[in-house]
Every structure is written in C-alpha cells, then in structure tokens.
Design a protein around this nucleic acid. Structure first.
Lengths: 222, 222
DNA sequence: GAATCAAAAATTATCTATAATTTGAAAACA
DNA sequence: TGTTTTCAAATTATAGATAATTTTTGATTC
C-alpha cells in the first residue's frame, strides 16, 4: 500500500473510523478498543490514539481518561443543537460567499440538487446535499468557519443515517431550488433566510420519542 | 505532585501550552519540538503528541505532517473571522439562555463587569470579560455550542494579548452594562442585538497594517 | 547551483506499569 | 436450599516510556 506523502497513519485511521461512525457501522456508546483497531489497521496503538483525538475534536468520539474512548452518543437534543449551529454558521458563510459566487458555481450547485433529488439511497443523497452546501459556502474564504461547518455536517449525517438506515424515499428539495433562484436574481438576503429555515430548527416540531416520529424529525435535517 | 485521577498527562501539557500560546510566550509560527517539550515536562513524547492534537482542535496549533507542529499563525483576516463566528454563536447561545437567566446570575455578571472595568492589566481584564460572557451563555445548556465559543474566546484572547502586551488602559464597558440592563427589563432581543454588535465586526473599520492602528482594531474585541 | 551526506526531528513500534473490569468463590440472607 | 451480595484474584486494556525507523533539513563538496 502506498501511503500519501502528506497524510499520516493517524489521519488515515481517523477517516476510516469517522466513516464507520457516521454510517452507523459503529454504534453510539460503543467502545473503541485501541489494540483491536491497531491490529486491524496493521499499526501500533500510538497512531490509533492520535486518530481518537481527531475524532474527539470532530465530536464523533468521547474520551474517558484511563477508560478509553467511546463512539459519541447523541440524542434529539443534540440533533437540535447541531441544526441550530449549522443554521447560524451557514448563513454567516453564505453572506460572505455571495459576492464571490459565479454562474459556474450556481450551475454546479444546481447539478448537485438534481443529483440529490434522483438519489436512490440515503448515502448518495447525503453526498449530493453536502456538495450543494459546500459549493455555495466555500467562496466565503473563511477556513475556520468552513471547518466547523464540515464537522456539523458530519454530525448531521449520523442522525440522518441512523433514521434512514434501511429505506429511503426520493423527494424534491424545493428549498435548494428556491435558494438558487434567489441567488441568481441577486436577492441574497432572501437566500440566507431560506437557508436558515432550511437547515435550522425553526418551526420544526420536536419529534415524540416513538421511533416512527423520530424518523420524521431526522428526515428534515437538510 | 499528585496528579488528578481524571486527567491525563496529555491534557495537562495541553493546558500549559495553550496558556503559553494565548499569552504570547510562544509566538505564532514557532515550532513545537516534541522532544524538548517532553523533556521539560518530564514525560515522553507520546502524551506530548496527543497534547498537540488537542491544541490543533482548538485552533492554537497546526500540524504539518512529517514536519511537526507549529503555533498557529494569525492575521487580521482571522481575527475578523473569529469575531464574526463568536457574534452569531454567542447570540444563539444567549437566546437559549435567556429563559434560564436568574437574578443571581445577572448579579454575578454585573460583578464581572465591574471587575473588568477596574482591571489594572490586560490579563485580568480578559478573565473578567470571559467570565461575563460565560455567565450569561452557560444556562443555554448546549454543550457543543459552549465548547465552540470557548475555543473562539481563546483565539480572541491571543489577539488581545498580542496587541496589549506591554501597556493597558482601563475603560468602562458600556456594552456590558447595556446588555445587563436590557436583560433585567426583559428586552431579550435588544440584549442579543447589542451582544452581536459588541462581539462582532459590524461597522468596525479594519485597521491599517501600521502597528499603532492594529492595536486599536484589537482593542475592540470584547 | 546541484548533489551528496550527516545530523536532527518526527513518526511509528515495542515494551512496561498501572488502572479498570470481569470472574468466581465464599458468605450472608431469605 | 437457592439467591444475592461482597470481596479478592485474574484478566484485560489503557497510558506512558523506551527504542527503532523514516523523513526532513542543513551543510559541505563538486
């Protein structure tokens, strides 16, 4: 295996584990045993521990000193917290990105929307949805802000996958199209307003604890 | 020294280094040599590397794979980015905290304001200022949000200390008093509006590169 | 100015000590 | 007699120390 010059074993393990946590292969609360993981990746426990720290920073794992690491748990309260943080941060990013948005970018965002609407499974929907948001926000040129938003997207994806693990129904994302239309016509404030409602929690009824209702709450995380 | 049961060598080193980076003892761009630091703390380099990862997550250090870690650099562009992120996140936190604010909390926030106004040096001013913000926001009960805000405060403090390293002049913080007054009278929206302006960058002229002007820009980071 | 070699420093591996968890047996109780 | 509780030994896993391996960097020579 030829490892990249600019990434370390720790970051490679971190990415692999993040993927598993987000997709739900590793369940919330599950222990992350460093020796087992080290063995699986053919490495020692030192880079594994560094990978754990990276996951901790992304909010995907939690450290219990002298007791190891666990996959971070999450509840509806946290879904809501993440959604609200995304709402305000994405609006901030969009406002700064707007002056730098080009027709080409909006074109690609449109394509991402189409890809999302025609997705056959939740995985590809999530990828397309994330691409849409990334495309519109990246031109803001604020690296720290974008990094925070990425981490929140990862958290959102966990919730999404946990709810739609088995089935998935395609649906047209009217918000995305409305945002694009507003941006094309120079109505930046309106685009920001739609984005805030789209991502955030405003007016979304907290779901009851019943499993079926929970899914409905999760499904609206855009 | 008897080490606490629930904190690790890595976190202890991390806190010590964070303190140095924030206070400016370690300069932006400076290399963090793991062997030297390990020796200084009487530990091996393994916990030192974990400490570096923690600092990286807080945005105080940057990793250059295969080349080690450096103290994170910062420029006016990043000061602005941090200020704007703080503005939107602190407003979000305040809105959720308001229903849980008690007279006792406002009392303590008032005391923190007085402490800030009578500070003789920038260190104690920063501590009092941070306490003020923490007191008002903590009741929001959103741990992830509060953690993000804490990291941004650390970044703000770096800028502050870098500008006011030698001298410091006391000044009365009218914004803090206005926020408290609004909260006492139940005008939450107005409190949030003042906080947003207070923390953020709106209407603040970006300073010229000349050192004297830069200080002025830094000084307004509340 | 390019290339080669040496020194330094980062990354990873191996090993050890210590803390946490589990297991199982004995005792207490119903 | 059966069940539960408690305590100690054994097992397991984490955290850290030490050692080995690359990789980078700086100097020196061609």
């Amino acid at each position: 295996m030829d490892k990249q010059r600019d990434d370390t074993i720790a970051s490679r393990i971190s990415r692999a584990l993040a993927e598993r946590i987000i997709s739900g292969v590793l369940s919330p609360g599950e222990r992350l045993r460093q020796d087992h993981i080290a063995e699986e990746f053919g490495a020692s426990h030192v880079p594994v521990r560094e990978a754990f720290r990276l996951l901790e920073a992304q909010g995907l794992a939690v450290s219990e000193p002298r007791r190891g690491f666990r996959v971070a748990a999450f509840d509806l309260k946290e879904v809501r917290e993440v959604a609200e943080m995304r709402a305000v941060l994405e609006v901030l990013a969009l406002r700064h990105a707007i002056p730098h948005l080009t027709a080409a970018i909006l074109e690609r965002a449109e394509a991402a929307t189409v890809a999302a609407d025609t997705s056959r499974d939740v995985r590809s929907w999530e990828a397309a949805n994330r691409a849409f948001h990334r495309l519109l926000l990246e031109p803001c040129g604020m690296p720290r802000l974008l990094a925070s938003i990425d981490d929140l997207h990862a958290a959102s994806a966990r919730f999404l996958f946990s709810a739609w693990r088995t089935s998935w129904e395609a649906r047209t994302d009217h918000d995305h199209r409305a945002i694009l239309a507003a941006l094309r016509e120079g109505r930046g404030d309106e685009a920001a307003k739609i984005l805030e409602r789209h991502v955030g929690w405003i007016g979304k009824t907290p779901a009851r604890t019943a499993a079926g209702e929970t899914r409905e709450a999760f499904s609206i995380v855009g």
